[in-house]
C-alpha cells in the first residue's frame, strides 16, 4: 500500500518536472518565444520572490493581493454555501419549499455570475460588497443544485426503514436524508469553490483596487508577463489547496462510501 502511494507520488512529481522542463527548454534554451511575453520558469520564480516584498507596479505585494482575494472569496463562498446547502436540502425534502423556491431559482440559475457584475457595480460600487455578492451568486447555485439532487436521490428503502421505526419527517431527514446526500453535497461544495475562485478573479479584473485579479490586470497594462504568471500560478495553487482542504473534510465526514 505504502509502495503504491509512493509510486503515485513519484508519477505526479515526474509529470510536474516534465512540464517545467519543457517550459524551460522552449524559453531559456531554444528561445522559441520571446521572454518578454513568455518568461521562463526561472524568471517567473524570480518574479515570485520579488513580488513577496515589492509593491510595484500594482500597489501591493503578493501577500496583500492574496489576502484581499481570499477575504472576499471566503466571505462570498461561505455565505453562498451557508444559504445554498440548507436551501437545497429543504427544497429536496419538503415539496412545498420546492414548489415555492424552484421556479425563481430556475429563472435566476442560467444567468452567469459575471453577468451580475455590471449590476453589482451599479448597486454596490467596486468595493468588497460587490465582489462578495458576485462570489455569493457563483457559490450558491452549485450548492443548491447538489444538495437538492443529493436529497432527491435518497434511497426510498432507507426512508422506509426510518419510518417503520417511527421516525418523523424531520428526524428522517437528519438521520437518513442528509447523511446519504453528503457525498453529493461535498461535490457541490467543490464545484462552488472553483466557481467562486474563478468569479473572483473575473470580478477583480473588471472592478477592483486590490486582489490577484487586479494584480494580473495591472501587470497586463504594463506588459509584465512574469508578474501575470505569478498571479496565475498563485490562483492555481491556492485553488488546489482549498480543494485539498475540502477533500480532507469530506474524508472525515463522509463515511462508508456509496457502494451498497
Amino acid at each position: 500500500m505504502k509502495e503504491k502511494k509512493l509510486k503515485y507520488t513519484l508519477i505526479s512529481v515526474a509529470s510536474i518536472a516534465a512540464f517545467l522542463s519543457v517550459w524551460y527548454l522552449v524559453t531559456d534554451v531554444f528561445h522559441i518565444f520571446p521572454s518578454s511575453t513568455f518568461p521562463s520558469p526561472v524568471k517567473v520564480a524570480q518574479a515570485f520572490i520579488r513580488k513577496l516584498t515589492v509593491k510595484t507596479p500594482d500597489g501591493g505585494t503578493l501577500a496583500t493581493h492574496l489576502a484581499a482575494s481570499l477575504k472576499v472569496a471566503l466571505y462570498g463562498y461561505l455565505l453562498g454555501i451557508g444559504i445554498g446547502v440548507p436551501l437545497g436540502i429543504l427544497m429536496g425534502w419538503f415539496r412545498k419549499v420546492d414548489l415555492i423556491v424552484k421556479p425563481i431559482f430556475d429563472l435566476v440559475r442560467p444567468i452567469p455570475p459575471v453577468g451580475w457584475i455590471p449590476l453589482m457595480i451599479l448597486w454596490l460600487g467596486i468595493g468588497m460588497r460587490a465582489k462578495a455578492t458576485v462570489i455569493f451568486v457563483s457559490a450558491v447555485t452549485p450548492s443548491i443544485i447538489n444538495a437538492y439532487t443529493g436529497i432527491k436521490q435518497t434511497n426510498s428503502v432507507h426512508i422506509w426503514v426510518a419510518r417503520t421505526f417511527g421516525a418523523k419527517s424531520l428526524e428522517t431527514l437528519i438521520k437518513v436524508g442528509i447523511p446519504s446526500a453528503l457525498p453529493m453535497i461535498f461535490a457541490g461544495l467543490k464545484v462552488s469553490l472553483g466557481a467562486s475562485w474563478m468569479a473572483l478573479v473575473a470580478a477583480e479584473m473588471l472592478a477592483s483596487t486590490e486582489g490577484l485579479g487586479y494584480m494580473i490586470q495591472m501587470n497586463r497594462m504594463v506588459g509584465k508577463a512574469d508578474n501575470i504568471m505569478v498571479g496565475m500560478i498563485t490562483i492555481g495553487l491556492v485553488g488546489a489547496m482549498l480543494t485539498w482542504i475540502l477533500e480532507k473534510l469530506e474524508n472525515k465526514l463522509v463515511k462508508g462510501g456509496r457502494t451498497k
Binding site: V157, H158, S180, G256, K260
Partner: peptide, 28 residues
C-alpha cells in the same frame, strides 16, 4: 412497535454495522 425486514438491501452505507443495528433503537 413494528419492525420490518425488507427484501432489498436496507443497511445504511454511511453507518457501521454497529450503528446500523442501533438505528431503530435510537429512534425509539
Amino acid at each position: 412497535s413494528i419492525a420490518y425486514i425488507m427484501q432489498e438491501y436496507s443497511t445504511m452505507s454511511w453507518l457501521t454495522v454497529r450503528e446500523n443495528v442501533q438505528f431503530g433503537m435510537k429512534i425509539r
